[in-house]
Amino acid sequence: MNRRTKTAAVAAALLITAGAAGSATASGDGAGGGREAAALTGTAKLYRPAGDDITFSFDAHLAAKDTMDPQAATGTFRYSHYKNGKGGYAVATVDCLTTGGTVAVVTGVVTETDLDDLKGKRVGISVHDDGRRDRLGYSWVGRDAHLEVPPCLSAAPFEKVRAGTGDFRVLPWHPVYPAE
Rank of each mutant, 00 (worst) to 15 (best):
W173N: 07
V127L: 05
V176I: 10
T76F: 09
G87I: 04
V109E: 13
D69T: 12
A156H: 07
V127C: 14
A72K: 09
F158W: 10
A104N: 11
A145Y: 04
A39F: 12
T41M: 09
A50D: 15
P172A: 10
A155D: 10
V10L: 10
F158M: 11
R162P: 03
D129S: 03
V123D: 02
K86W: 01
R162Y: 14
H81D: 04
G120F: 03
K83I: 05
T98K: 15
P151I: 00
G32S: 11
D53A: 14
S139M: 01
D134V: 04
V176R: 06
R48Q: 08
R48V: 02
R132F: 14
A73M: 11
L153A: 12
L147G: 00
G164I: 09
D117M: 01
T76C: 02
E159M: 12
K65P: 07
K119D: 02
T113W: 00
Y47A: 13
F168L: 05
P172Y: 14
T74E: 04
S57P: 10
G42S: 07
A64E: 15
D117R: 08
G85R: 07
R135P: 05
A145G: 05
R135D: 00
H61W: 08
A9D: 00
S154K: 03
R132L: 03
G33Y: 11
R133C: 00
A18I: 11
D59H: 02
G32K: 13
I54E: 12
T107K: 05
A44R: 06
A44H: 09
T55C: 14
T76E: 03
G33L: 09
A60R: 13
L15V: 13
T107E: 02
A63E: 14
R143M: 09
D114H: 06
P175Q: 10
